[in-house]
């Protein structure tokens, strides 16, 4: 087990009576790209704000780098870089001066500005006032700012918001390279699973303030096993036959469903049904995408096989 960088215990935030974040226990290990997923309004940004000290938790505590955040706030912040929601910037300053105003606070050498500008490919535009920047460039400047202090932990809240497809692709490549190239642990939030699928090593899914899933992305993928749907003439009868022969079968009005079935088993089932005089009309394979699983999880239910037939 590698070193835990982020650990929250029963982290909660209540606004008036509304629980925006409810007992969240995050675990992020060194070198992870942790995808923090959830629909809009699920509590992602609130959680991240608490991790960055922008907001005080109502309950629970935060451990960063093995230290209690509350008591070592400045030291923890020194080791983190962040980009929360829309990028912050001073529009009247050039890109370079924006970074310079932060560099002085982070007390890193001046050469670091050129390095981060190079990483986000803004070197050419560094002298222009930021008010002339496109949204994508502002976003990249925000990333540059987050990298400025050589952080060990990078917290990015919806960093691909407002980027065009090539920008998203570029951002993804950049983030993917961070653990190996710079030794940075990344926590990245998104409401799109597809985005994480190509990037994250671990995922946490938050819905209505509660963390409903937290594990490696492979485990989540395994939930996306294909399902065989067989349309038959007599569903109830067929199901009964199969079950009494030891098959695990579920059904709806006119389909039987088999989970995780090999080709040979499908053939056996079909032969068996034909022998029992049951008409087999159609055999289909339904695949859950990660997106389906995500939607299912965030709907608040357990995985429900029949509802995801596509």
């Amino acid at each position: 087990m590698s070193e835990i960088i982020v650990q929250t215990n029963n982290l909660s935030k209540t606004f008036k009576k509304y629980k925006a974040v409810d007992g969240v226990d995050l675990r992020i290990s060194k070198g992870d790209i942790y995808g923090f997923l959830g629909p809009n309004g699920a509590g992602k940004t609130t959680t991240i704000r608490m991790l960055l000290g922008l907001m005080k938790p109502s309950e629970g505590d935060i451990q960063l780098f093995g230290q209690t955040f509350d008591q070592n706030k400045l030291e923890c912040l020194r080791r983190m870089g962040s980009l929360v929601e829309s990028p912050s910037y001073y529009e009247h300053l050039s890109g370079r001066d924006n970074l310079e105003a932060l560099r002085i606070l982070l007390q890193v050498p001046k050469s670091r500005i050129d390095e981060v500008l190079e990483i986000v490919r803004l070197t050419k535009d560094a002298g222009r006032p930021v008010k002339q920047y496109s949204l994508g460039m502002k976003q990249r400047l925000g990333i540059a700012a987050s990298l400025l202090g050589n952080p060990e932990l990078l917290v990015l809240d919806e960093p691909t918001n407002g980027l065009d497809p090539s920008g998203i692709q570029e951002m993804r490549e950049l983030i993917k390279s961070m653990p190996s190239k710079y030794g940075i642990t990344v926590m990245i939030s998104s409401h799109l699973l597809s985005e994480m699928d190509q990037m994250a090593t671990r995922v946490g899914i938050i819905s209505k303030g509660k963390l409903i899933y937290q594990d490696s992305i492979e485990k989540l993928r395994n939930k996306a096993m294909p399902q065989i749907a067989i349309r038959v003439s007599h569903v109830a009868k067929a199901k009964g036959y199969l079950q009494s022969n030891g098959w695990k079968v579920s059904s709806d009005a006119d389909h039987l469903f088999l989970e995780g079935t090999s080709d040979r088993e499908v053939a056996e089932v079909v032969a068996f049904l034909a022998q029992k005089q049951i008409g087999v009309y159609r055999i289909e394979e339904n695949r859950h995408t990660l997106e389906d699983i995500f939607l299912d999880l965030t709907k608040g239910g357990e995985l429900d096989a029949s509802s995801t037939a596509s």
Binding site: G53, L54, L77, V84, G149
Partner: peptide, 18 residues
């Protein structure tokens, strides 16, 4: 004003300064 404008407070407060 320039801190309010594009919510630069947020960025400033995540810097290691009190």
């Amino acid at each position: 004003r320039y801190e309010h404008q594009h919510n630069a407070w947020k960025q400033l407060f995540t810097m290691p300064v009190s």
